[in-house]
Simulated scan of single mutants.
Amino acid sequence: MTNEAFYPIGTPGKPWGAAEVAEWRSTQHPKRSYADEVVSVIDALRDRFDVSEYGRLDYHADKFPLFAIRSRDWDDSLPIVLVTGGVHGYETSGVHGALRFVDKHAADYGGRVNLLVAPCVSPWAYEMIHRWNRDAIDPNRSFHDNSPAQESAALMKLVAPIVDRALVHIDLHETTDTDESEFRPALSARDGKAYEPGTIPDGFYLVDDADSPQPEFHKAIIEAVAKVTHIAPADDKGEIIGSTVFSPGVIRYAFKPLGLCAGVTNAPYTTTTEVYPDSPRATPEQCNVAQAVAVCAAIDFALGQG
């Protein structure tokens, strides 16, 4: 299969240059409001949490400030938990699940952990409902030195002081039907490669760190989330999205070598959640709840290790 057969931008077999990126960008238009749907929710939390601006996207600085939410009673003697959402802006429950956790559950951990939450790492992509940033770069492959993605660079700067102090980092994501209908075809076209169709798993799953796996940690999260939504089964190859399933609902990627957000700290307990919002068995509210439950389970397990 060639690029020509599945994506309208670019020349089959040839990676995109500046002209193709510009053409792609011209097709992107806001479909929802970061200010109305995200910033307004963050603003409503200011009476209970410390909210700070940790950067602004050059695309439109006034429109896309980047916000972090912190425990008001920050205590340097306590462990640190980092929660990130919206690294891929189109993954809605990553953003609103993080905000739900702060609103509904963060107070439960007062005096036990310091919370640092970046609920919408990629606000431009949130508005466009896209995986990439404005430069057709995937922020979740860009968490490395000299990052080409403003979103990734800003988050790395934010977390630099806690890289070696974090106990938990949970990065909230989704796998959607549009991964196959739009985003993976676009990726193949951008990189000048042939597109190989895949399958979308129906249900929640987790990505563990292949270089430092924590099977019991992931088991605890899966068991908690299974009470609110279904867990994705392995396919007939024993895989989820082409990766081996090591235990129910758990696959592994090498976080740091791949430049994934989940590798942005040296926390001993790290994971990436993946919710399936297009399932007929899950509502948007269930997806948000599943994300928040996953965060709680991750913290509870880590604190229970003594």
Rank of each mutant, 00 (worst) to 15 (best):
H88G: 00
I80C: 04
G97R: 05
Y59P: 00
H60D: 14
P79S: 02
V117T: 02
L82G: 10
G85N: 12
V83I: 14
G86C: 08
G97F: 07
D103S: 15
D76M: 05
T84K: 09
H88A: 02
F67W: 07
A61N: 00
T92Q: 09
I69W: 01
A107F: 15
Y90R: 12
R100I: 05
D108G: 14
V81H: 10
H88S: 02
G110F: 14
Y59L: 15
G55C: 09
D58Y: 10
T92P: 00
T92R: 13
L57N: 08
R100D: 06
Y59N: 05
D58I: 06
G89T: 00
V83G: 14
Y90H: 05
D103G: 12
A118D: 03
S93A: 15
G111F: 11
A107W: 13
D108A: 14
A68W: 07
D76R: 11
A61T: 09
T84P: 13
F64V: 00
A61Y: 08
D76S: 11
R72Q: 04
L99V: 10
D58H: 06
G110I: 12
V102S: 12
K104F: 04
F67G: 04
V102K: 04
F101H: 05
I80K: 07
V95M: 03
A107E: 02
R112A: 07
G85C: 14
Y90I: 00
G110Y: 03
L82N: 09
F101D: 08
V102W: 08
F67M: 05
H96S: 14
L99Y: 09
P79I: 04
H96T: 14
T92A: 15
L82V: 13
R112Y: 07
L116W: 06
G94V: 10
G55N: 11
F67N: 02
A118Q: 02
F67T: 00
S71E: 01
K63P: 00
G85L: 12
D76A: 13
F67D: 00
V117D: 03
R72Y: 08
G55L: 09
V113C: 11
G97K: 02
D58S: 15
